[in-house]
Computed example of a mutant assay.
Amino acid sequence: MSRYRGPRLRVVRRLGELPGLSRKSPRRAYPPGQHGQARKKRSEYAIRLEEKQKLRFNYGLSEKQLLRYVRKARRATGSTGQALLQLLEMRLDNTVFRLGMAPTIPAARQLVNHGHVTVNGRVVNIPSYQCRAGEAIGVRDNDASRRLVQANLEYPGLANMPSHLEFDKTKLAGKVNGVIEREWIALQINELLVVEYYSRQA
C-alpha cells in the first residue's frame, strides 16, 4: 500500500492530533462519516489498530515500511516500543521537521526529496536516512533553498525543539547531539499496543 495522499484533516478527526501530519485542527471533535457521533465500544484489536495507524499516518509510512521498522526495533536492545519510536524520530525527514525547517513531516519529506537538505555538507535526498549523533544538518548552498527554509522557520510545526537537537537560525545549520528521549516525542501514543499489533506478523 502506497503512502497516504488523501485529506489529512479526515485522518486527524478519526485518530486524534497528529502533529507531524497537519497543523490544522478539525472544526468537529468527532470522527468523520455517517456513524462518527455514534461511537461503539471498540474491541482490543480496534484499539491496537488505531495506535498503529496513528504511527503510520504521523510519520507518513507505508505498511511495509512500518513493518520493517518494527522488525529492526525487535533486534535492538531494550524496549521494542521505545526503539521503534527512536528509529522513526531519527529519520531525516522527521529531524528536518523537528528542527523547524518545515511545517509538517510531508513538507519536510518534499524538502529532502528536492535536494534542499545537506547532511555533513553533502546533499541527501532520501527521507528515510537515519540520522546519527554528531551529524550536521544544513541547507543546500543556494538562494532558493535558503529562502524556502527561512520562510518555513517563521512558522515552525512544533514550538519546542527536542534536547537531542540544536539549530542556529542565522547559519541555517542544525546538529544531532544524540538519540531522542521518550518524553520529547510529540505524538501521544501507546507504543506497546503497536508492538502487540505486530506480534503475530513481525
Results as ranks from 00 to 15, higher is better:
99 L>V: 05
158 L>N: 00
152 N>E: 04
175 K>C: 12
58 N>P: 07
137 I>S: 11
151 A>S: 14
15 L>K: 04
76 A>T: 11
118 T>P: 04
57 F>E: 08
80 T>V: 12
136 A>R: 15
9 L>W: 01
71 R>M: 07
49 L>A: 05
107 A>C: 07
155 Y>A: 10
78 G>R: 11
151 A>H: 15
72 K>F: 07
54 K>T: 12
36 G>H: 05
185 I>V: 13
46 A>N: 09
153 L>Q: 10
86 Q>C: 03
68 R>H: 05
104 T>W: 00
162 P>A: 08
167 F>S: 05
96 V>K: 03
23 R>I: 08
128 S>H: 04
15 L>Q: 08
113 N>D: 09
63 E>N: 05
134 G>R: 12
146 R>Q: 14
115 G>E: 07
80 T>P: 12
125 N>T: 14
168 D>M: 11
100 G>W: 00
20 G>R: 09
104 T>C: 06
159 A>I: 13
160 N>D: 14
76 A>I: 03
48 R>Q: 14
201 Q>C: 03
121 G>A: 14
93 D>G: 08
135 E>N: 03
68 R>D: 07
157 G>C: 09
90 M>N: 06
154 E>M: 09
147 R>V: 01
68 R>L: 06
169 K>W: 02
38 A>G: 02
3 R>P: 04
56 R>K: 15
183 E>M: 10
114 H>N: 11
86 Q>S: 14
184 W>N: 10
99 L>M: 13
117 V>T: 09
72 K>I: 04
85 L>V: 11
196 E>Y: 01
128 S>F: 08
185 I>S: 01
19 P>Y: 03
45 Y>M: 06
178 G>C: 10
34 Q>H: 12
21 L>I: 07
13 R>S: 05
77 T>L: 08
85 L>W: 06
118 T>E: 08
142 N>P: 10
143 D>Q: 15
63 E>K: 14
165 L>A: 12
17 E>H: 08
160 N>I: 13
9 L>D: 03
73 A>W: 02
130 Q>M: 02
87 L>I: 15
101 M>G: 06
56 R>I: 02
34 Q>V: 06
175 K>Q: 09
137 I>F: 06
44 E>W: 07
77 T>E: 12
166 E>I: 13
60 G>H: 09
136 A>K: 14
185 I>R: 06
153 L>E: 04
111 L>H: 04
202 A>G: 15
149 V>T: 02
124 V>P: 07
7 P>L: 02
168 D>N: 15
73 A>P: 04
171 K>Q: 15
104 T>I: 11
126 I>G: 13
